[in-house]
Computed example of a mutant assay.
Amino acid sequence: MRTIIVGTRQSALALTQTGQVVELLKQLAAEHGIACEFEIKKIVTKGDRILDVTLSKVGGKGLFVKEIEQALTDGDIDMAVHSMKDMPFELPEGLVVGAIPKREDARDALITRGFSSLDELPQGALVGTSSLRRASQLQHYRPDLRIESVRGNIDSRLRKLEEENFDAIMLAAAGLHRVGWQDRISAYLPPEICLPAVGQGALCIECRGGDAFILDLLGKFQHEPTALAVRAERAFLGRLNGGCQVPLGAYASVSEESSGSEGPLLTLTGMVGTPDGVTMLKESASGHDPEALGKLIADKLIAQGAETILAEVRE
Results as ranks from 00 to 15, higher is better:
142 R>M: 11
191 P>Q: 14
223 H>K: 06
283 E>K: 15
313 V>A: 13
29 A>R: 14
129 T>G: 00
298 A>G: 02
130 S>R: 14
162 E>I: 12
99 A>K: 13
158 L>A: 05
62 G>T: 01
101 P>W: 03
30 A>H: 10
143 P>Y: 15
25 L>F: 03
58 V>I: 12
284 S>W: 03
175 G>A: 04
9 R>P: 03
36 C>M: 03
242 G>S: 03
220 K>I: 02
100 I>E: 11
126 L>Q: 15
127 V>N: 06
28 L>M: 10
305 G>W: 15
74 D>K: 14
202 A>L: 01
126 L>N: 04
82 H>F: 11
308 T>A: 12
76 D>Q: 15
199 G>S: 04
267 T>M: 06
198 V>T: 03
60 G>E: 06
244 C>T: 11
84 M>Y: 04
121 L>S: 02
102 K>P: 06
196 P>K: 08
284 S>T: 08
60 G>V: 10
102 K>D: 12
303 A>W: 12
304 Q>A: 14
138 L>T: 14
253 S>L: 09
284 S>A: 10
33 G>T: 02
237 L>H: 02
9 R>A: 08
123 Q>K: 12
56 S>H: 13
12 A>R: 07
172 A>K: 04
197 A>Q: 11
270 G>M: 09
151 R>F: 00
57 K>L: 08
73 T>V: 04
206 E>G: 08
31 E>D: 15
213 F>S: 00
38 F>K: 05
108 D>M: 14
75 G>A: 15
103 R>S: 02
190 P>M: 05
188 Y>T: 07
268 L>C: 06
84 M>A: 14
111 I>Y: 09
251 Y>R: 15
170 M>Y: 10
